[in-house]
């Protein structure tokens, strides 16, 4: 479904990605793990068109590098970004509805609301509240909910567990598994190695902008080298 070949990206001379090749198959959950500053977020930004890249990024036959960011989102490649990037002064409901803004004219565009509320019932109780007044965990739910409203086919999540207590993390990971169950492909960036590898099918390990290991999630989870050398656990 998504294939990256030899993708590089840099910020003013600093190479954040160097020749990354990666593949995500339809219906998979693929995890990308690595230490701080390894380039995980940059990888997701590259796919969603927010940083300039070299190489090839192919999504179902289309070269995403030639497409503007909002059009990438309209293709069904959607990112739940680091730091969530909600619209803080707008209500929870407005944030969710805006997820469907690009589909104006489609009478069914608000349908995913049901899914969002069944995944995160708390959001339904807080519809009128401003996004900035939500707790960190609720904000993460809202960010995922907003992305779901766009009816993604490939959902990319950048550290959904950031700043969230362990029990809620399990809830969110469970939600991700459910979302995959509905046919959405998942590309997941996570710091929490064990949890991420538990739900993922395959995983890539990133170190200073390069893929240093890839394979079945179970193998990577069991590999002591990975844990020690690349993740410092």
């Amino acid at each position: 479904m998504l294939r990256l070949e030899d993708v590089s990206a840099s910020y003013r001379g600093l190479r954040a990605l160097q020749g990354v090749s990666l593949e995500v198959g339809k219906g998979e959950i693929v995890a990308v793990v690595g230490a701080n500053g390894a380039g995980k977020s940059t990888l997701l930004k590259a796919i969603s068109g927010q940083v300039a890249t070299e190489g090839a990024i192919d999504f179902e036959g289309q070269d995403l590098r030639r497409i503007r960011p909002h059009q990438i989102a309209r293709l069904g490649v959607n990112l739940v970004p680091e730091g969530r990037r909600l619209f803080p002064r707008l209500s929870v409901e407005d944030n969710l509805r805006l997820g469907a803004y690009a589909k104006r004219g489609d009478p069914d565009r608000f349908k995913p609301l049901d899914l969002v509320f069944s995944l995160f019932p708390r959001l339904q109780e807080r519809l009128a509240q401003r996004a900035e007044t939500l707790s960190g965990g609720e904000q993460q739910m809202l960010a995922i909910g907003r992305a779901l409203m766009t009816q993604p086919r490939l959902l990319m999540l950048d550290e959904p567990s950031q700043g969230i207590m362990p029990r809620l993390v399990d809830d969110i990971l469970a939600a991700i598994v459910r979302i995959r169950g509905l046919g959405v492909t998942i590309l997941l960036v996570e710091q929490r190695l064990a949890e991420a590898l538990e739900i993922a099918d395959r995983a890539y390990v990133l170190q200073t902008g390069r893929v240093v290991m890839s394979g079945a999630a179970r193998d990577i989870a069991g590999n002591a080298d990975v844990r020690r050398a690349y993740l410092g656990i």
């Binding site: 960011p69 059009q71 989102a73 309209r74 959607n78 803004y101 766009t150």
Partner: peptide, 10 residues
């Protein structure tokens, strides 16, 4: 910048 993520052309 975030609006592009939900398909809005700023």
């Amino acid at each position: 910048d975030a609006v592009a993520l939900i398909g809005i052309d700023r």
